[in-house]
Design a protein around this nucleic acid. Structure first.
Lengths: 241, 241
DNA sequence: GGGGCGAGAGTGGCATGCGACACGTCACCG
DNA sequence: CGGTGACGTGTCGCATGCCACTCTCGCCCC
């Protein structure tokens, strides 16, 4: 007989809680925490907490400091550059490939995610919006047929969320973001792999520029917007603008 | 299984031992092992073994099966395709970028690694050869300035080593491999970023074709060499040959 | 009063205890 | 003779014990 509620393992729950806490800033970047403390707060023992933290450490979100505690790492400007350089290298080719490989379910799922984004944007629901944004991208990445690529890029987004999600609206409305995704979706539906890849490229680049300019401004103080970082390694001496 | 040498956190040593054992095939792909057993063989307790295995599981080398043991995962043909598709997307741009960013130490280290490769090839020492091959690539990846990229690609190589290292010589001599690296090194030294990127592209593609053809042959039986897999997602409708 | 130092509290890392579950075995029943 | 179910063994997942080390802070000596 099959168990219906199938509760997730403690480890998975702890991992989700900790990841959410780090992303939300509830565990402040740069702060130190003890495994014992976290375990008590979560109502479990040290072991699953430690194991979840090991996974987060591998992803670069935290760092163990022996006999001191677990440090919540901050996402530096350089981290954002790394993440977006990688996304620029990987996502456009993934979309190019996904365009010709999407099956019916994936295509339907992609439409669903986009519809949810539109609805969330209308309702001004930022959280739901970014949640489906992420799933939209994930469907595309998985449709490329390369699971490692999909998992890696999806993991990179955690780094961005920590700095970006709550402030993104300062420079770009939710409707603009929806429009960029609509362009990608339309080109995919039309079977234009090149166009879709290019649209994705522009979307990622646009996001990167806004986020990095914004964060650089936050780091350097208001008024400083001179940011011209060399993100796009894609091709030979391509015009960066 | 190899006994642990000296100091340096038990965890790190266990991780190295287990990784080596998986790569060498000492822990056979598809086989099940208990944490207790592995711990005993390594002369440590279950905890560091379990923690090391968690890291390997995140990398996709093993999988925990509840109340059954730890499964050593096999590297399928599809896995090889994924790995090389990613390397083709990432390594050439990384080299393009590294060419203009190498500092003195890195340049010296690169030369050192290449010299070791030459020497090992002369001595027909396959193991040392591939060890320095890997470090050669790693220096380049790190010189690109993107630590995430470097760590990710370096991790991908584990998957390849497991199937490739002991059989690679069937289709390509050590001298050939050295020659491909020499081309890359020379172009870097000459400051030709485009050329170096192209040379790296050809090197990775060449390696991929040989390895995949070989493994496909092994999977499908001798005589089957018809392999034409779509690895290169780099650009628009590029001629694959 | 100032500076060095030592004891205590707190921590991560490793070892070990314990319970629930999966699977193979074998005796028992139809 | 075949199917079946209970039991024993082995395993992971989680909890807890233990140790060496670090850092803090207050006390003592100068």
């Amino acid at each position: 007989m099959k168990q219906l509620p199938e509760t997730a393992s403690v480890n998975a729950q702890v991992l989700a809680s900790l990841r959410a806490a780090v992303i939300s800033g509830e565990l402040a970047p740069g702060s130190l925490h003890s495994v014992q403390n976290l375990a008590t707060q979560l109502g479990v023992s040290r072991t699953p907490v430690r194991e979840a933290l090991i996974k987060l450490a591998q992803q670069g979100m935290v760092r163990f400091e022996r006999n001191r505690g677990v440090r919540i790492l901050l996402t530096s400007l350089h981290d954002l550059e790394e993440v977006f350089a990688l996304r620029l290298l990987l996502e456009p080719p993934a979309v190019r490939r996904a365009t010709t490989r999407l099956d019916g379910n994936q295509r339907r799922e992609l439409r669903r995610m986009f519809a949810h984004m539109e609805k969330a944007a209308k309702a001004d629901d930022e959280f739901t919006m970014f949640e489906h944004d992420r799933r939209f991208h994930r469907v595309l990445l998985e449709a490329s047929g390369n699971a490692r690529l999909a998992a890696f890029v999806d993991g990179l987004r955690d780094m961005v969320l920590r700095r970006g999600v709550s402030t993104a609206r300062e420079s770009r409305s939710l409707d603009d973001i929806v429009a960029e995704h609509r362009a990608i979706l339309d080109l995919i539906e039309a079977g234009d792999a090149e166009g879709a890849a290019k649209a994705m490229r522009e979307h990622v680049r646009h996001t990167a520029e806004l986020l990095i300019a914004q964060e650089a401004g936050a780091d350097l103080g208001p008024g400083v917007v001179a940011v011209d970082i060399d993100l796009d390694w894609t091709g030979p001496a391509r015009d960066q603008h």
